[in-house]
Computed example of a mutant assay.
Amino acid sequence: MNSPRRLARIAGVLYLLVGIFGGFAEGFVYPKVYAVGDAATTAGNVIGNSGLVRLGIVADLFNAVVWIFLAMTLYLLLKHVNKSVARAMVVLVAIGASIVCLNTVFEFEGLRAATGAINLAALGTAGSNALVLLLLDTQHYGISIAQIFFGLWLVPLGYLAYKSAGWFPRWLGVLLIVGGACYLVDLLAAFLVPDFGKEIHAFIWIPSAIAEISMVLYLLVIGVKTVKPAARRAALVAID
Rank of each mutant, 00 (worst) to 15 (best):
R54H: 10
I57D: 02
A59S: 15
A59K: 06
A59F: 08
L61W: 05
F62A: 13
A64G: 12
A64W: 10
V66Q: 06
V66D: 01
V66C: 06
I68V: 15
I68Q: 07
A71V: 10
M72C: 12
M72G: 10
T73L: 04
L74H: 08
L74E: 10
Y75C: 09
L77A: 09
K79T: 06
H80I: 06
N82V: 07
K83V: 14
V85I: 14
M89H: 13
V90E: 02
V90F: 06
V91P: 09
V91M: 15
V91E: 13
A94S: 14
I95M: 11
I95H: 04
I95L: 10
G96F: 01
G96A: 00
A97R: 02
A97N: 07
I99N: 07
V100S: 00
N103F: 09
V105D: 04
F106P: 03
E107T: 12
F108E: 09
G110R: 09
L111C: 01
R112E: 05
R112I: 01
A114M: 05
A114L: 05
G116I: 12
A117C: 00
A117T: 00
I118D: 11
N119R: 07
L120D: 01
A121V: 13
A121F: 02
A122I: 11
A122M: 12
L123S: 12
G124N: 07
N129F: 03
N129I: 03
A130P: 03
A130K: 07
L131Y: 08
L134E: 14
L134Y: 10
L136P: 00
Q139D: 04
H140M: 13
Y141E: 13
Y141I: 14
A146K: 01
A146I: 04
Q147W: 09
I148P: 06
F149A: 02
F150Q: 07
